[in-house]
Design a binder for these strands. Structure first.
Lengths: 227, 227
DNA sequence: TCAAGGATCATTGTATCCAATCTGGCCGCA
DNA sequence: TGCGGCCAGATTGGATACAATGATCCTTGA
């Protein structure tokens, strides 16, 4: 009997489809499953010790979320975004998260601002390691979004951030210009929210997100191979 | 070559899952499947002459798109939105579509403006019939969105519009105040886009969408029953 | 009469099976 | 040698079969 499958599920209560979903999301976000990779349902199923059906459903869900692309009768590949598509996603996130900051600015309290400052410090310390940086960066934005009373809006913002994560990760590994001004830029965001002026907060976050250099993000290290 | 099979299914090429998806979306958007209705996969499968599997996948897709809600081991129900959730969706659409209008204002041409005017006249003539009105209203906004060079953004805007469609439909059936000012308001939108000023176009569309009276939309005629 | 508990049934979640489709290589033929 | 068609393996889409879970209703005992 094979025990590895048992080790892979510390959470026993979760369904096979949830297991497959989390597994695939994690592989994609982390970049271990590169864009363009052909994902064969049966292979994943065997690797996870489940049948092909729940994997299929997970793949379909990932497809509607944009992480994968299903081609009729020819399987699913990890979605590979081009420059324009990455730019579009950043643009959408900029618009949505900026609007969220408008609401955040009106209701964030002293404690929230303090948490944001702490997150900023963590972010500053994490600049040397890609994984830490991404985690800290997510946390920074999440701390602010915690004060946004619009659950679906927040969910959508996070979804977009996750969809672009592999590209950010690739970029950070080869070029650190994106990291260089991070601390100052995020400090600015906090300052703008601190004004409590919705217009300032919205305009500030929009600019912050759009300031990313998309051309750097769309650099591809690897060519997709069919596996 | 055998043509009979083509006759039997006007839409020949579509998969069972696509069939189930379209069927369910249509039922939900039209309001024939009311919010809160328990959708049993097997029933739908038999009604469509397919097996339960493709229906399940369609349901899962609808769930990730927000049209349905899956409760573990207890089936799927048509998502029923409360006042706040409807308001949130309108808010998101307002923000996104307003941004889209910023781009539209910069690139729409004489022909586009003409099409918009025509759509506006259709909208005006359709004010007496709920179905026509919704169709014409969708068309009006779509005409403008055709000039937005951001496919995902447009897709997301449409998705949100569709998600709120049943509530708009219910409202229009009982109260016509939402219709009353329609023509003037949409004429204003055109005028604002005609200025070609991105700020004006964005602010105008934001206001237009947010002007809807959410309290009227969230009026429920029916109480959800488990079926 | 009513609440607790259990049997029964409907429905979901997962696995397995079969058919349809695609892919790639091999062979024949010009 | 090069092109096109055909066959075999791989993979997907769909159907069926089975297990597990939750809901319902009926019994039973106080």
């Amino acid at each position: 009997m094979d025990l590895t499958s048992e080790r892979q599920r510390p959470e026993q209560g979760q369904s096979a489809q949830a297991l497959a979903y989390r597994y695939l999301v994690d592989e994609i976000r982390s970049g271990r499953l590169a864009g363009g990779t052909h994902v064969v349902a049966d292979k994943v199923a065997q690797a996870l010790g489940v049948s092909r059906m729940p994997v299929r459903e997970a793949i379909r869900q990932l497809a509607t979320e944009g992480f994968m692309t299903i081609r009729s009768n020819r399987g699913a590949v990890v979605t590979s975004l081009g420059r324009d598509e990455i730019a579009e996603l950043y643009e959408m996130r900029a618009v949505l998260e900026a609007f969220a900051m408008r609401l955040v600015a009106e209701r964030i309290d002293r404690q929230g601002l303090e948490e944001a400052e702490i997150a900023l410090q963590r972010l500053d310390r994490a600049r040397s390691d890609v994984d830490w940086f991404i985690t800290a960066h997510d946390q920074f934005h999440d701390v602010l979004l915690d004060y946004c009373p619009r659950p679906r809006l927040v969910e959508e913002i996070r979804r977009i951030r996750h969809a672009t994560e592999p590209y950010l990760r690739m970029t950070l590994r080869v070029s650190s210009t994106a990291i260089r001004n991070t601390t100052r830029e995020h400090a600015e965001v906090i300052a703008q929210i601190r004004t409590r002026d919705p217009e300032v907060a919205e305009a500030g976050m929009r600019e912050h997100i759009l300031r990313i250099d998309v051309d750097e993000l769309s650099v591809r290290e690897q060519t997709p191979r069919g596996t």
